[in-house]
Amino acid sequence: MTVKLGRGACGGHVTLFFAIMDKSKNIEEQGSFGAGFCLKNGVEAITRGEEGDFNLKINYLDGDGDDELYEEVIKILLDEIPEIGDYSWELNIKMSLPVSQGFGMSGAGAIAAASSFQRALGIAHEESRRRSYLVAHKVERIRSTGLGDITALSAGGVERRIAVGSPYSGEKLNSGPGKAEGWFEKIPLILAWKSKTGKHTANYIDNLEWKKKITSSGRKAMKTISKGNWDRSRWQELIESAEKFVIDSELIMDSERNELLFESNNLIKDCDLEGYVVSLLCMLGQSIVIVPKNLDLNNFEIDKICNKFNAAGFETIVTSLSNNL
């Protein structure tokens, strides 16, 4: 009996600010402008396929997951790669970040799973990579779990999304309407969150009032961020734009984010590190990413911060930027 094995992996993504652009009826043309961080930690998917009746069994090696996400991935792939229907599949998912906390885990999971199925069938790396981004973008839009994470992840590093839509599209998987630019540097990032999960992304991006506030504020931020070269010289501008966005959009006043940011800032002050690091809210979760204020002084006391936050009831993970460049 023929057995197929494949692996896919993708890091998560933190959005700092964004503008919702979903008016097109073509989901490949929907998405967002914005900016954020592509993370090293995320999702690993390993698939095993045995020749026989088509079926999908999903196992989660760390915590619980969302079966419907992966069922949608294989459903879309099946339309494009009929050979997938000749196998009974087992999909093993390992997550190194929590879901529903603003870390882009639905997009990362969709990319990792789509890649693993294709690699199991021996599809070439570049074709598999491009199709995985397209499939994941479709899944995100069909399920209202994300807008621009997939386009962002196609760039890697510190990214800005300057054109809306999927990064790849069409049968030939040519460059899509979406475009993001990224730059990479070894920057330590501390992710911190409380165990309570945030609102589902759809509660914001499908709500007309929130869409108006978010998009207006996101467009303001992108007026300057979208211009000029995109490199480390824009770091301070990125931080300031993120801080302004959460106030202008009023997202800081929703889901206890204001209290979360206030507590985080106080904990950093208790560490006497307020001159070295800054807390930024992760959109649209109830979580914080702590980053250096100055990229030339990024060797801050990570253990001290994590211990302080853990003692205050936060969960923390130290990660870094992913490099897709």
Rank of each mutant, 00 (worst) to 15 (best):
M1Y: 02
K4G: 07
L5G: 01
G11A: 13
G11T: 12
V14K: 01
V14Q: 03
L16G: 01
F17W: 07
F17Q: 02
I20N: 14
D22F: 15
S24F: 03
I27F: 15
I27D: 15
E28M: 09
Q30S: 09
G31D: 08
G34E: 14
A35E: 05
G36N: 02
F37H: 01
V43W: 13
E44N: 11
T47M: 02
G52S: 08
G52F: 09
L56R: 08
L56N: 06
L56M: 11
N59V: 14
Y60L: 11
G63T: 06
D64A: 14
E68M: 12
K75S: 05
D79E: 15
E83A: 14
S88R: 07
S88H: 02
W89T: 06
E90W: 00
L91G: 05
M95C: 15
S100T: 05
G102S: 11
G104H: 03
M105P: 11
G107M: 03
A110E: 02
A113L: 03
S115Y: 12
S115N: 12
L121K: 02
L121N: 06
G122Q: 05
I123F: 13
A124M: 12
E126R: 07
E126P: 10
R129E: 13
R131W: 09
R131F: 06
I142G: 04
S154Y: 08
S154E: 11
G156I: 10
G157I: 05
G157W: 04
G165K: 11
P167Q: 09
S169M: 08
G170M: 09
N174E: 14
S175E: 15
K179R: 14
P188C: 10
I190Q: 04
I190P: 04
A192E: 12
A192Y: 15
K194E: 15
G198H: 08
K199E: 10
H200S: 13
T201D: 07
T201V: 14
A202Q: 15
A202K: 13
N203V: 04
I205C: 12
N207M: 06
E209A: 10
K211G: 01
I214G: 12
T215K: 15
T215D: 15
K220G: 01
M222Q: 06
M222E: 02
K223V: 07
T224E: 05
G228F: 08
N229L: 06
W230T: 04
R232V: 02
R232G: 00
E237G: 13
S241E: 10
K244E: 07
V246S: 09
S255C: 00
N258W: 05
E259N: 08
S264K: 00
N265S: 11
D270P: 00
D270F: 08
D270I: 01
C271F: 02
L273Y: 10
G275R: 11
V277E: 13
S279T: 07
G285D: 04
G285Y: 06
G285L: 04
S287V: 05
P292C: 07
E301Y: 10
I302L: 06
G313T: 13
E315F: 12
E315G: 03
E315P: 02
T316G: 08
S322D: 12
N324R: 15
N324I: 13
L325D: 12
